[in-house]
């Protein structure tokens, strides 16, 4: 009894941590709706898209940094940017007629401490 009372706060905390940790997946839904609607917007405009495979993309802060850098350095060219952390791919929808060179892409990503694996370019269908 004495042991149980002494460890009561620890037990409560462990219980709380367990509940939080294992209930969190229900909160873990990415911004799929936002990405879908922006993808539709890009498709309608027929704009170019970039798919950049990146290594080292393991945390949310890294992804946020990339998003922020592209929006800051290429704000005229970037219509939308989304990150798929499962595949480590950064997708960028460009504004109509805009371009970003491979050199600039590599510079922005390297400056963020990440590495470029592959850059694919495509055109959205109208």
């Amino acid at each position: 009894m004495k042991y149980a009372m002494r460890n009561c706060p620890l037990n409560i905390l462990v219980l709380l941590l367990s509940v939080l940790a294992f209930s969190a997946p229900s909160l873990a839904e990415g911004p799929a709706v936002r990405a879908d609607s922006l993808a539709d917007q890009t498709a309608k405009s027929g704009a170019d898209t970039l798919s950049i495979e990146v290594s080292g993309l393991v945390c949310e802060f890294c992804a946020r940094g990339l998003e922020k850098s592209f929006k800051k350095n290429k704000k005229e060219q970037v219509l939308n940017i989304s990150v798929d952390m499962d595949s480590s791919v950064v997708s960028i929808d460009l504004t109509a007629g805009a371009e970003i060179s491979d050199k600039d892409i590599r510079k922005i990503i390297n400056d963020n401490g990440l590495s470029v694996v592959k850059i694919d370019r495509g055109k959205s269908s109208k």
Partner: peptide
């Protein structure tokens, strides 16, 4: 305990 998507918890 789970791998969350970008933007999630």
């Amino acid at each position: 305990p789970y791998v969350g998507d970008y933007g999630s918890l």
